[in-house]
Every structure is written in C-alpha cells, then in structure tokens.
Design a protein around this nucleic acid. Sequence first.
DNA 1: TTGTAATGATACCATATAAGTATCATTTGT
DNA 2: ACAAATGATACTTATATGGTATCATTACAA
Lengths: 133, 133
Amino acid sequence: MNLLTRNTDYAVRALIYMSGKHPERVSTADLDRDLHLPRPFMRKILQILQKAGYLASVKGKNGGFTLAKVPSRIHLTELIALFQGPVSMGDCLFRKKLCDCADGCPLRRVIKGIEAMALARLKSVTLASLTGA
Amino acid sequence: MNLLTRNTDYAVRALIYMSGKHPERVSTADLDRDLHLPRPFMRKILQILQKAGYLASVKGKNGGFTLAKVPSRIHLTELIALFQGPVSMGDCLFRKKLCDCADGCPLRRVIKGIEAMALARLKSVTLASLTGA
DNA sequence: TTGTAATGATACCATATAAGTATCATTTGT
DNA sequence: ACAAATGATACTTATATGGTATCATTACAA
C-alpha cells in the first residue's frame, strides 16, 4: 500500500527540481537528463501540472516550464488530489445493505481517524517545507 | 487509496460474525446466508485464516470453522499483514540511484511519520475492541 | 457402504488501475 | 525552413485485486 503513486512522486520531484532552478526554464529534456525519469510519462505529468496552474509553460524552441506558484503555497495534499483523487483511506469497507456502516461501524471509525491524522500531517507539507527553503 | 482491501475487510467481518456465534461452528454456507459475501472468495479467506491459526476447522458434514484465538488477541495489524503484507505506505518513492533517499529525503520522512502514526493506531485495534466486547 | 456436505489445496480468470508509450498538431527561436 | 520545444490525446502494457472453478479429502448419517 503506497500513500503516493508514481505520478505524484514524479511530480513532487520535478517541482523540487524546478524550484531549485527557478526562474530558469526547465524542459522535459532537462528533467530526463538530471532525474532520469521516463520521459514521455514525465511530459504528461508536467502538462497536468501546467493545466492545474502549478507550472507556466513556453512553447517552441528553448521552451519549457517554470514554477507558477511560490513553493510555500504548493501543498502536498493538492498534488495528491490532482493525481490520485482526494485522500481517502476507507471508502466504506462494509458495503451498504450488509451492515449499518452509515453510523456506527467501529472499524470504519478507526480508519477515518487514521485518515484524519494523515490528512492533517499532509496538509502541513508544502514544496517549500520539502526543499527546506 | 484504501487502507484495507476487500479480503482483509471480509476477514474482519467473518471473524466478528464468528466471535458472535462462538463456540458454535460456522460454515461458509452460514456466512453466505447471513453476510452475503462472494462465497468461494470467502472460502479462500477462511482457509487463509485457518492456516494462520485464527480459525480451527472441522472437515466433513456439519463441519465448519470456529475462532481459535480470543478476540482480544487478534490484532487488526496482523490481519492486514496476512492479506496485504506489512503496513507500509512509502516503499521508496524516490527510487534508488535517483536520490539519496536512504537517509535524508524529507518526503520519505513525512510518509514514514504518517505510517508510524497509522501503525500505532492500528495496533490498538483488536477483534475484541471492534465487537465492543 | 454410499451419498452428501463440508473443508484443503490450488489453479485459473476478470477487471481495474497504474505506469508508460506513441503520435500528430502547434508554437517559436535561429 | 528546420529544429526543438509543448498541447492534446489515444494507445499499450504491467500489476494487483477480486473472484471462480475444480478436484481431492474427510466425516456424518441413512
């Protein structure tokens, strides 16, 4: 069970890299060279980040991406939501009709509690906190 | 992202059911009738629980399963481990060679921290605590 | 002693999601 | 005009989860 999937992971790495280079432009070629991540996959991820407003892009020769937000305002939870959907660890384990999970299921309560803890912790993580800046 | 998979979930439900019936014998047919879970899947799960020592089984006509451990000594973490492997939320996100995730990767630290919290919480959950007994 | 209802063991299949690739169009600097 | 970049999007592959099927074995009971 992994809290982050690859694309979220790669996204974070790319953003860290870019925050280091800022305001210099970074292309997928650069990332490929320095981070050695699967290039077309990375490309897709960057496009998603761009659409979501985390990156600004410049097309054409010498084009590339730059951070479009300050690192302190890029939250890990947002990135997770973007690539994996909202953080949710227990989408009704006990399925409807089979139990009244609606209200009192104790297992569900435990899971929800853990989820809340995880979420609280994740919310405090920003790109800035990851780079130590 | 789900903290528990179906088989863990079903296992918990079956165990709760059985702790309610104890020391009466429970067959997959009973579970099918009362819990309406996919029967052959449930069978497989029960066999795993039996092998792992949580259930005692009796073959032949009128056979079935009974709890082989006291509910207070059946920990949720064990069941998770049995069906999903050990709880681990961040099996090296930053893959080797690409970063020195070995020691100082901050993202990894965060994940590991969350994992530790979740684990601590999960460890306190037993079958007994779930049934309220 | 034979039929039936149960588990033991295990191989197989289906489906969804994650991970990754490929392609064509568009833009832009030289 | 060409090359190097992104935009958009469709496609493929790998893996894990969820679920089935089958044959062997055991035991009760008519």
